[in-house]
């Protein structure tokens, strides 16, 4: 009963704040509503006993991604009011597409028939991989992440590497005439190469 109440609280706030993300006028409040959405989604995860995912959502998405968004939004000089100027004229088309999708979804859900036996066998199939009782979320993920799913894990690493190479290739510019510190050159300097002695005759002027 209490769990159900919390579920509706989290789910309701989650949807409402997700709507506010796209409805808000000021991008900063949009990002703040996004953070609220993440927190409520984390609450939902806790309700189903996935505390590791809940904490990851808060740490990674709120702590890193959303804060980065906030920095970007506050730093770049984009006139969001101008960007939004044409927003309303697309609204009817967007609403039409949305309504079509909604009708389709209602049709699908209306005729939805999932044989309970299917879900049962699916749950049973998934349960064969389930960890023993008393194993925490974190431990359970740790048990399989570097063993059963080593391959997918490593490949995900390559995906991130490509993202890094891509960011460098597309944005790094070597500017000429930029002074850089070259330690080897500094160390290699000797008295002869760096000091020039001039014999200035006295009283001759420069």
């Amino acid at each position: 009963m209490v769990a159900a109440a919390f579920f509706y609280l989290f789910a309701g706030v989650c949807i409402a704040s997700a709507f506010m993300v796209i409805a808000g006028r000021n991008p900063v409040t949009s990002v703040l509503f996004l953070i609220l959405t993440f927190f409520n989604a984390a609450g939902l995860f806790i309700l189903i006993g996935a505390e590791f995912l809940a904490m990851m959502l808060v740490v990674v998405y709120v702590g890193a991604v959303a804060v980065l968004f906030l920095f970007v939004v506050m730093m770049i000089d984009v006139d969001f009011a101008e960007l939004r100027a044409g927003f309303l004229q697309y609204l009817p088309v967007g609403a039409l597409v949305g309504i079509v999708f909604l009708i389709e979804l209602v049709l699908v859900v209306g005729t939805l028939f999932v044989d309970p036996a299917v879900l049962h066998t699916a749950a049973a199939a998934a349960a064969t991989d389930a960890p023993r009782a008393g194993v925490t979320n974190t431990e359970a993920i740790g048990l399989v992440l570097y063993t059963d799913y080593l391959f997918a894990f490593q490949t995900a690493g390559f995906v991130l590497l490509v993202a890094m190479i891509g960011a460098i290739v597309l944005t790094l510019r070597h500017k000429p005439n930029v002074k850089r510190q070259d330690i080897a050159a500094q160390v290699a300097r000797s008295h002869e190469t760096s000091v020039e002695l001039k014999n200035v005759p006295s009283r001759a002027g420069v």
């Binding site: 391959f151 997918a152 490949t155 995900a156 390559f158 995906v159 490509v162 993202a163 190479i165 891509g166």
Partner: peptide, 15 residues
Amino acid sequence: TLYVGLELQSLAIYV
């Protein structure tokens, strides 16, 4: 595997 392979392939091509 399908997903990570596809993503690795596509991401490099986007770049």
